[in-house]
Amino acid sequence: MPSGDELIELIRAVAQTRDRSAFAVLFKHFAPRVKAYLVRAGTLSELAEELAQETMVTVWRKAVSFDPARAQVSTWVFTIARNLRVDALRRQHGVRGDDGISAEPHPDADLLAHAVPDAPAPDERLAGARREAAVRQALRQLAPEQLQILWLSFYDAQSHARIATELNLPLGTVKSRIRLAVGHLRRLLQGEEP
């Protein structure tokens, strides 16, 4: 498995020289992981396949905009896949209104789709690499079951019920464990945030 630094070098090779063999390594590493994430997040296998391909196309196209000071490659790829998943869900269902699911996508769906603003302030950009290291350090200190519940909450937080079924736990227990895991991560990160 390529290291974080190796991944950065591969992205750089794609960005600067359109290096196909570097891209092939990135594809082989990330596409099956992105697909696995999307399937775990409830995306049907065929669409997950397509979105994983689309994620990698985006990596190819936007490699030049990747900024290693801001995030690790895996974090960048995750946010690309996440945004494509959110867009696909919005396209599929339209935007859910108060009365349920509308037939047509909301005219502002593109604007509303992503909760996280794209461009960070300059000071936030510089904090990126430090944050990546702090988060990974904190994650190593989480108990395996807390890590498991944290990962599950990435797959589909709307359906904690499904997590409860998967872990054979009462729903309330799942919710409180997610809060505990997130709170633990937050405490471990304290001092790293403004």
Binding site: P32, A71, T79, R131, E193, P194
Partner: peptide, 26 residues
């Protein structure tokens, strides 16, 4: 900015999740 930093930290966790997930077959 404080909450943005939190979200970015959770995104980093998402990156770590992607690294640790069992890969699917394409």
């Amino acid at each position: 900015a404080r909450c943005r930093a939190s979200v970015h930290a959770f995104e980093s966790a998402g990156g770590a999740m992607l690294e640790s997930i069992e890969p699917a077959l394409m």
